[in-house]
């Protein structure tokens, strides 16, 4: 069982959260012309690292806030959790 520290609610069990994937993926800006490659990169291509991974989680059965998590994909250890507008 993972224990995830929601930046709003504190440590809660994994059952209350859902996973949102790689937090480093940025949607291309709306105002400017987007090339096919930029769009494909955003939609499909991932770094998929073995080690530290910054990712999004959603406290869906709690405060319903999204936040960022720095977690190891080798040991599942969680190093840090921060609010969406903060840097990991």
């Amino acid at each position: 069982m993972l224990e995830i520290k929601c930046p709003y609610c504190g440590k809660r069990s994994q059952n209350e959260f859902s996973y949102g994937g790689d937090a480093t993926v940025k949607r291309p800006d709306l105002e400017k012309e987007v090339s096919d490659k930029e769009w494909d990169d955003f939609l499909y291509y991932r770094k998929n690292p073995r080690g530290e991974h910054s990712e999004l989680w959603h406290h869906v059965a709690g405060c319903r806030q999204w936040f960022k998590v720095l977690r190891s994909t080798i040991t599942h250890e969680i190093f840090k959790t921060v609010k969406m507008n903060e840097e990991l």
Partner: peptide, 13 residues
């Protein structure tokens, strides 16, 4: 399990 992992082991939930 639903999150990125290279661990070859999962969780009980």
């Amino acid at each position: 399990d639903g999150y990125n992992s290279y661990a070859q082991r999962g969780n009980l939930p």
